[in-house]
Design a protein around this nucleic acid. Sequence first.
DNA 1: CCCCTAATTCCACTTAGTGGAAATACGTAA
DNA 2: TTACGTATTTCCACTAAGTGGAATTAGGGG
Lengths: 261, 261
Amino acid sequence: MTQVRRYAGGIDGNRSLERGIEILRAFRPGVDTLGNGEIAERTGLPRSTVSRLTRTLVNSGMLDEVHSERAYRLAASVISIGHAMRTGSPVLNTIGAMMRAESAKRRLNVGLATADRTMMVYLESIRYSPRAALRNVVAGQQVPMELTSLGRAYLAGIDETERERLLRQFKRRSAAATKALLADVRRSISAVERDGYCAVSWQPAVLAVATPIVLEGLPVYALNMSLQNVDRSDALASEIGSYLIAFAAKCKEALGGREPE
Amino acid sequence: MTQVRRYAGGIDGNRSLERGIEILRAFRPGVDTLGNGEIAERTGLPRSTVSRLTRTLVNSGMLDEVHSERAYRLAASVISIGHAMRTGSPVLNTIGAMMRAESAKRRLNVGLATADRTMMVYLESIRYSPRAALRNVVAGQQVPMELTSLGRAYLAGIDETERERLLRQFKRRSAAATKALLADVRRSISAVERDGYCAVSWQPAVLAVATPIVLEGLPVYALNMSLQNVDRSDALASEIGSYLIAFAAKCKEALGGREPE
DNA sequence: CCCCTAATTCCACTTAGTGGAAATACGTAA
DNA sequence: TTACGTATTTCCACTAAGTGGAATTAGGGG
């Protein structure tokens, strides 16, 4: 970010709004309440500014004030907006049901995600389990882009410029093992270009295979299938891969969107 | 709102942030994309201002731009913040599991909600179904406060001032049937004070019973139990009511919070 | 190619936001 | 209770940042 922000004349955007959103973002998963001081620390904003912006966020219903500990927590509004996002999206409505059916048919987990900065966010995640009804409510969960099949498939689906920008970001944040990791990421991207999918075992004994879904007028999605308690083998990966690309094709068709270029 | 906003000196809050949030709110459930024009209409903001603020929201990752139709949609960030809210809350983590167990034990639906302005927002909703795994992913769904058992229980749980403010808002928005409706709402509130719960059949053939959960340092919640395909009867309502208040007591204990006053 | 509509940028104006410093509220220990 | 240390909120002078109407530009039919 050598880029200098001007914020004058209003061409670059609105500083206060940007800061307010940054405050909401400071509430990472697992955090319950944050005081103004801690928010100031996490965001690097002056305390008086934080004080004013948190007040605004309370008035707007995005934060609840916890008087007893002089702190704030995310309010119910944020999940209602999240709900609006999920119900508004014809994509999720269409693909959700298809994913459920596919999960049952193939007896494996099926997930759909897209990017939020350098993380992949699950929009839908169907866990296959012989006894159904194991919590399938992980929508919103984040996993690191560079380490997961979902993330790498996403990287393969976006344009060159954006991809290189993201790769530079990974380098910046994880000091160690960068070289090998980045090479591995590039290998996965090549795999997607060659085979249509990439396979990654991010967590031990979990084999995950993912493919990008690129349609005009929609964000780039990544679709994955995964299996627990298996050893990684190329044969298995390629079997799942073939299911995956068939399913992805079916999804793209159902969405009726044309692929760009 | 005869109240005059000054916005000077920064004591009342931040105008741009408030407006930005209002733009996010313009994406109601079911809406997919909105253009700047439509946003300007819905929010009453000048078009140039909307243009700048939506740009900022895109930069902050809260909106995705859809070039092909010159429009915006909510981005994945909003559900990841929503997810942070749900995982951060010890309340939801604790009560969620209890609700699941209770639903199975009593063979009925169990829901937990809180308020977002004049709507109740489900934080968790367990649908009882003999064949499990019917979509229990309705967290974030909104139902009208004045018409539902959840909303009326909530009203009974908050303080006098806030309650009267909300009642006035109901009057303002639904022109017809106001008198009878408000009387009915007040009757439900009295029922909560007398019996600990209120029963409402908002949707046909659905009996819902709700009770407030008021604990220090937490927003007021409402807990409900409901049954489909039954006729409303006072005997049934009181049976469910007794389950409900027992379960609510168990929840309050598990949360270890002391009730105020 | 030209019109029509809608979004974006320009720009002069000045208010609304800023952040350091002061004041205040809070909790704790003496 | 009082005095102290910490965290938060308010004050206030400064001016940059935001505003919105007008002009401009970009789309997209016909």
